[in-house]
């Protein structure tokens, strides 16, 4: 996690956006490693695939379309206010930690209210060895439905934002659905 801190700071400092994107990927990757250590294998798997993979690819793609260098600047006053806001937020968070259960604490409420049923009964009720999958796809499957729709929204949203209509030049190149049957009237 200290490594993540280092990477995070590097992201804040470095102005070459290309490097920043790569660092962001590395950040996710280290995060994924931390997840494994913390027993969250599924999450780690996903974070590695998404954070390190998809996000980075997307960022690089964006950079290819825009520019690689971040401009110098950003008034001093702006960063001072930003720093203040961040400091206050952080302080509230740290304040909040004081009454938190200790790391790894077995008797914390968090592990004893809802979760025991998942751990103890999901085998009989759902029949899946992977509890995460059971919870994800059955107990809380509605969340997952929502999640699927989020990604669906994002995909169609990107279509709507960057879709064909903007680029008249390349209309004949028939990207998103330019060549297929319906709605092609332009």
């Amino acid at each position: 996690m200290l490594m993540m801190g280092a990477v995070g700071l590097a992201i804040a400092r470095i102005r070459d956006l290309f490097a920043v994107s790569m660092l962001s990927g590395i950040f996710s990757l280290i995060g994924a490693a931390a997840y494994v250590v913390l027993d969250a294998v599924d999450v780690a798997f996903t974070e590695a695939a998404v954070g390190a993979g998809i996000s980075t690819v997307l960022m690089l793609g964006t950079l290819a379309l825009t520019t690689r260098k971040e401009k110098l600047g950003g008034g001093k006053s702006k960063s001072t206010t930003a720093f203040l806001v961040v400091a206050v937020t952080g302080a509230v968070l740290v304040y909040g930690t004081f009454d938190m259960p200790r790391y790894g604490d077995k008797i914390a409420a968090i592990h004893h209210h809802v979760v025991p049923r998942y751990i103890e009964k999901s085998g009989e009720e759902v029949g899946m060895p992977n509890i995460v999958t059971s919870v994800l796809a059955s107990y809380r499957s509605f969340d997952t439905l929502g999640e699927v729709f989020v990604i669906f929204t994002a995909a169609t949203g990107v279509l709507a934002i960057l879709g064909r209509a903007r680029r008249r030049r390349e209309d004949e190149e028939a990207d998103e659905g330019g060549s297929d049957t319906k709605g092609a009237a332009s």
Binding site: F149, T153, T156, A160, G163, A165, G183, A184
Partner: peptide, 17 residues
Amino acid sequence: ARPRIYLFYLMYMLCMT
């Protein structure tokens, strides 16, 4: 833009949902 209108209504419904 006309080719995007169907996406507009899609987004509209998703937003409402």
